[in-house]
Design a protein around this nucleic acid. Structure first.
Length: 269
DNA sequence: CGCCAGGACGCCC
DNA sequence: GGGCGTCATGGC
């Protein structure tokens, strides 16, 4: 990554990033594509920090109204800009299918999201589609001046008082996750550092958190790149290309590979 | 009307 | 331990 300051904006050069692929691939649900003069522009938030970011046709990125301090202190981390994704793709390309997937969706990066927001978001995601997931999260954040509520705030709600979300049977799961997290019964910061199997079981104590949601929280919210969420699409990939299991040489970055594969199979079948 | 959506749960055998 | 109906909601 390379960057330069231009007035109130910061221009970032990074080859292994595509905003459409990264912000609209189902790993984060709160980025909105807005009209602009650029190739594409998104606005969104990480915790309490707002960002508008554009991608130009040249491949450069404009972080609007951003200080150097915010770029280096927050957004470099969020977009995982200090990780060399060229090297990751080189490693994965030892496998033929992964090589194709990387070639197809090489601009995906694994965002370093907030654990808590990620937990609630993927509880909402179960048996749901992406537009409706976004709608539910929008309604939730609208109630808190556009920011994502804290666990303390949400723990004061009940499944009934959450009816305005129209999240269906997931409301009782949101209630349980909130009360557990607010009380300290579920300690997300601690879970993030546990050995993967212990982290899995700790997350699955929460009602509504099964294998898939737990893997998503580990991967997207805790940056555990060995986590490997399996949904209907990845099941197809596994059945067709990896009947004997995912290649062991890439086990430590299986979750990143999963993102490339997910995008690849969905757009090409 | 039916089917499906980045699933999990409860119950069955 | 695997198989299956059920759970809200909304778009098609």
């Amino acid at each position: 990554m390379d960057y330069s300051i231009r007035g109130c904006d910061i221009i970032v050069s990074e080859r292994d990033l595509d905003l459409d692929e990264t912000l609209d691939c189902g790993q984060a649900f709160r980025w909105k594509k807005i009209a602009s003069d650029y190739d594409c522009t998104y606005e969104g938030r990480f915790l309490n920090d707002y960002l508008m970011v554009s991608q130009e046709k040249s491949g450069q990125f404009i972080f609007h109204n951003t200080t150097e301090e915010d770029l280096l202190g927050k957004w470099v981390d969020y977009f995982d800009l200090s990780t060399d994704y060229s090297e990751i793709k080189r490693r994965l390309s030892e496998d033929e299918t992964l090589s194709k997937a990387c070639g197809f969706a090489g601009g995906i990066r694994l965002l370093r999201q907030d654990k808590w927001e990620c937990l609630i978001s993927f509880i909402i995601s179960q048996n749901n589609n992406i537009p409706r997931i976004k709608g539910i999260i929008d309604r939730l954040c609208e109630r808190y001046e556009g920011r994502f509520p804290t666990a303390d705030e949400l723990s004061r709600e009940t499944a009934d008082s959450l009816a305005y979300l129209r999240s269906g049977f997931r409301a009782k799961y949101i209630e349980d996750a909130s009360k557990r997290t607010a009380s300290g019964n579920t300690a997300l910061d601690t879970i993030a550092k546990l050995p993967i199997e212990e982290a899995r079981s700790a997350l699955r104590e929460i009602k509504g958190v099964g294998p898939k949601v737990a893997e998503c929280v580990l991967l997207f919210g805790m940056h555990r790149t060995e986590a490997f969420p399996i949904d209907v699409w990845i099941k197809r990939v596994m059945a067709e290309y990896y009947p004997n299991g995912f290649p062991a040489f890439a086990a430590d970055i299986a979750g990143i590979a999963q993102q490339y594969l997910f995008h690849y199979i969905r757009c090409n079948s």
